[in-house]
């Protein structure tokens, strides 16, 4: 085995992969949230904005601009690597306990949520299922061109906004989304600071800051995402 594959298949190498892909996904979530907030332009009462125009133009840009496309393939790969590696680790870790588990469990942790930390596999799986649904509902429709066209100032783009608006007029999908964001929050609560620990960053002076930023991040980002379907649902009631 080459040194690189030895490294990447060692327990620390595997964790490093989880950490780096996780950190990339953390960054992605920020970009994704900023983009998605354009779904809520109806709140601004800007006279120049037609419903969904900003979002649809943004979606068009994201799917056609080459550098973004390249990054997006990286993103798909990272999601898959994070998920597959995560499942493999989960399986190994369950096996490592041995044939008989504990009759009484009383898990304690330092500086993280023990329940979240011990259930990253479950949380991740739920997020993955959500992702499949999410991608099917929006990303796939965009890719295979089933969306109705819409024209803004002579430029014709796919009307993703209407699909989103329709979806989140349905309280069931809103509920699924909210639950998923709750799960994402828990996953991040442990994952954010854990990624730094795996990278070897545990420092008397900086770790407390990472811990705080991680906690703020894992609340603010999922909350921001959760706001969108809720506002859109409320908007649909007004319409």
């Amino acid at each position: 085995m080459s040194w690189a594959s030895k490294f990447l298949t060692s327990s620390i190498g595997k964790k490093l992969i989880m950490s780096l892909t996780g950190l990339f996904l953390i960054l992605f979530l920020v970009v994704h949230l900023i983009g998605n907030l354009q779904l809520l332009t109806f709140l601004t009462d800007d006279p120049a904005d037609k419903p969904g125009m900003a979002f649809n133009l943004y979606a068009e840009f994201m799917t056609t601009f080459t550098p973004i496309k390249v990054v997006s393939y990286g993103l798909y790969a990272f999601i898959l690597i994070h998920a597959v590696q995560g499942w493999m680790l989960w399986r190994q870790n369950v096996q490592a306990r041995g044939p008989i588990g504990y009759a009484v469990k009383d898990l304690r942790a330092v500086n993280t949520n023990a329940r979240a930390a011990a259930r990253m596999g479950w949380l991740g799986t739920i997020i993955f299922v959500f992702l499949v649904l999410h991608l099917y509902q929006f990303w796939l429709q965009m890719k295979i061109g089933t969306l109705a066209p819409v024209t803004y100032d002579g430029k014709t783009v796919a009307d993703l906004y209407s699909v989103v608006a329709q979806t989140y007029a349905n309280p069931v999908f809103v509920a699924v989304y909210l639950i998923s964001m709750f799960v994402v929050a828990f996953h991040l609560w442990h994952g954010f600071q854990s990624a730094f620990q795996t990278l070897g960053l545990n420092h008397k002076k900086y770790t407390p800051a990472i811990q705080v930023i991680g906690k703020i991040y894992s609340i603010v980002i999922p909350l921001g995402f959760a706001l969108i379907p809720v506002m859109m649902y409320l908007q649909s009631l007004n319409a």
Partner: peptide, 22 residues
């Protein structure tokens, strides 16, 4: 040491920190 640890069949660290707690 990491190589031997992996060979022995221990699980992978996921920074749960239960070790430090106990």
């Amino acid at each position: 040491m990491v190589k031997q640890m992996d060979l022995e069949g221990f699980g992978n660290c996921s920074n749960v920190t239960a070790c430090e707690a106990e």
